[in-house]
Amino acid sequence: MPGLTIGDTVADLELETTQGKIRIHDYVGDGYCIVFSHPADFTPVCTTELGMMAKYAPEFEKRGVKLLGLSCDDVESHKEWIKDVEAYTPGSLVTYPIAADPKREVIKQLNMVDPDEEDASGNQLPSRALHVVGPDKKVKLSMLYPASTGRNMDEVLRVVDSLQKAAKHKVATPVNWKPGDPVVISPSVSNEEAKQMFPQGFETTDLPSKKEYLRFTQA
């Protein structure tokens, strides 16, 4: 499935992981799942990332979100490396599975290949890619970072909150939104519908165009 992107269904692949064999669709279940790749085990940025993901795991669990790591290293490498990851982030255990993809088949299916990064043998490495997969097994959001840039777990948590709020209400989250901030009402919702859907009220921003499309509310 080259080019996997938002709206695409994730292939129901069988994966070898640090917690045994899993199928992606079974693992996602009825909730959300963050599938995230890293270039290689025993590397500095990846160690900080997976340690921080372990630290944030309880927050994701509160939101019904599972975690699934992935790289092209084998399972035994992952298991040894986890000791370093946990040592770097004391008190945070890696409770999520990390999948092994030594043949590079999974990273190609999930569109997680970094064209600029290779190992010592000239094999392609995964990018710092991240897909948020919904209960319908479709990609809801994707992030793609180069090997040199570690991901921000506060931002990953924020986008999960945004996605789940948008799925529950007919709203979207504006720039720099954080949980507790006002949201905007979808343009597909008329003012009359908005009055029914948001009895707490909403505020329409007065714009030069006089078009009433920028409406804020709490949800």
Score class of each variant (00 low, 15 high):
residue 2 P to H: 11
residue 5 T to Y: 08
residue 7 G to H: 11
residue 7 G to K: 09
residue 8 D to T: 04
residue 10 V to Q: 05
residue 10 V to G: 01
residue 12 D to G: 09
residue 13 L to Q: 12
residue 24 I to D: 02
residue 24 I to P: 01
residue 26 D to R: 11
residue 31 G to V: 05
residue 33 C to T: 11
residue 35 V to Q: 05
residue 36 F to E: 02
residue 36 F to S: 04
residue 37 S to K: 14
residue 38 H to G: 10
residue 41 D to M: 02
residue 43 T to Q: 10
residue 44 P to H: 06
residue 50 L to A: 00
residue 52 M to P: 01
residue 54 A to S: 15
residue 58 P to E: 10
residue 62 K to M: 10
residue 71 S to W: 00
residue 71 S to L: 06
residue 74 D to G: 11
residue 76 E to Q: 14
residue 77 S to E: 08
residue 77 S to C: 11
residue 81 W to T: 03
residue 89 T to Q: 08
residue 94 V to M: 04
residue 101 D to M: 06
residue 102 P to F: 05
residue 103 K to G: 02
residue 104 R to H: 13
residue 107 I to T: 09
residue 107 I to L: 13
residue 108 K to E: 14
residue 110 L to R: 00
residue 110 L to F: 15
residue 115 P to M: 10
residue 119 D to L: 14
residue 122 G to P: 03
residue 125 L to F: 10
residue 128 R to H: 10
residue 128 R to V: 08
residue 131 H to K: 07
residue 133 V to R: 02
residue 134 G to K: 14
residue 139 V to T: 07
residue 142 S to C: 06
residue 145 Y to G: 07
residue 147 A to D: 10
residue 150 G to V: 07
residue 151 R to Q: 12
residue 153 M to T: 08
residue 158 R to N: 11
residue 159 V to P: 02
residue 161 D to K: 04
residue 169 H to A: 11
residue 172 A to F: 13
residue 177 W to E: 07
residue 179 P to M: 09
residue 190 S to Q: 11
residue 193 E to D: 13
residue 198 F to L: 09
residue 200 Q to Y: 02
residue 205 T to F: 14
residue 211 K to T: 14
residue 215 R to E: 12
residue 218 Q to R: 06
residue 218 Q to A: 07
residue 218 Q to P: 02
